[in-house]
Design a protein around this nucleic acid. Structure first.
Lengths: 212, 212
DNA sequence: ACCTGAACACCGTTCAAGT
DNA sequence: ACCTGAACACCGTTCAAGT
């Protein structure tokens, strides 16, 4: 089933003449433009076709359905991202581990923040479309609760409690989500969970004020 | 503008009679059921109303539009989650920092993995609806590239290279996404980026094979 | 080989009519 | 005060007809 879906998402036919190739590119560019400027909800087939300067019928010759427009954008985006990470990794073979870490984080960070509108458009979750205020309220509550807890730690004081708190929450929430998206087997999930604890502990041990 | 949208997302009127309250609850439950069993794409107003045993018109008396169904589900979900984190935090005041970390990670992890279908349904991003194979391919490429790099580290060997690699990628990708979703000011983003480097370095320093 | 656009089924939303 | 469901505008998708 998954296989047949994927097949349907792939282009229906490959352009054989020059004008067809132009058409496919125009549709692709139009999809990104509409996605970024109007948002995923207002991305309609008619709008994309109009922006691309072709009829809806033409669009459906190359994209089997609306979803495959998303698919195409996502695919190119991920391909570019994967290439960036791959070449960054190759460029740092043989270096010290801390340099590798820095290169990896920096590459990914810059790739995502480079075109923030596109990243945002692709990240927007179905349920989160108009829910930023909800997320803000949630973050505020949790930030307050955990900062208050960390302030009472019996063995530790931080020079920058707010910063450590924000980092920990962003890392924990993000990692859990990321683990979900990878659709990991149960055992891998358990492993990540344990490593997440190790990792956060290692971080606070670096960040806590050292006894004088 | 954001304000007016939020207002529209809130319930149109509060139920004043018992049967109305039953109706609202039924619609809410039906929304979750349809979301989980049919997926966000097949969540139509007619389907939800039918599942709830009311007419579409009734639904629109309490929910201004389809988005506000998502909003309601998301709101309750986040409220419950925030309460869990809050009470977990309060319960660990005064303990050692490492216990706090463990409590925070565990609480969040269990809350998310407790009802994985709901979590998945709410996490699914617009662009990712049918794109799991795309994500899988991306993960495979990046995993291979970074594992190959880490294997060549001049100053470090790992007992569990695969595991460290999977953890680092999940943490880095997740944290970047999480930072995006919080819609942070630029300075906070820069801070998180720097801390992410510190945190990953601290982690590999714990995980690397110690010189004998 | 490629393109068009009217036609159809379906979905979000409304509102006059009911209890 | 609450509920109904036909009606309308719009969107995804198709296909007979064109170049």
């Amino acid at each position: 089933m998954a296989q047949s879906q994927v097949t349907r998402l792939n282009p229906r036919k490959s352009p054989r003449q020059a004008r067809a190739e132009v058409t496919v590119d125009a549709i692709f560019e139009a999809t990104i433009q509409v996605l970024v400027s109007e948002g995923p909800q207002r991305l309609t087939t008619t709008r994309v076709a109009q922006r691309a300067g072709v009829s809806v019928g033409t669009m459906y010759q190359y994209f089997a359905n609306k979803q495959s427009l998303f698919y195409a954008v996502n695919k190119r985006y991920l391909d570019v991202l994967a290439e960036k990470v791959e070449s960054a990794c190759e460029a740092h073979h043989g270096e010290r581990i801390e340099q590798m870490i820095e290169a990896l984080v920096t590459t990914y960070w810059l790739a995502k923040t480079g075109k923030p509108e596109v990243t945002h458009a692709l990240y927007r979750s179905v349920a989160d479309l108009d829910n930023q205020p909800l997320m803000d309220a949630f973050s505020a509550r949790v930030d307050a609760a955990s900062a208050a807890m960390f302030a009472t730690a019996s063995d530790t004081q931080f020079d920058n409690l707010e910063g450590v708190n924000l980092t920990l929450l962003t890392v924990i929430f993000g990692t859990v989500r990321s683990a979900f998206e990878r659709n990991m087997p149960y055992a891998d999930g358990q492993f990540i969970y344990q490593q997440l604890v190790v990792l956060c502990k290692a971080y606070v041990n670096v960040m806590r004020r050292q006894a004088a």
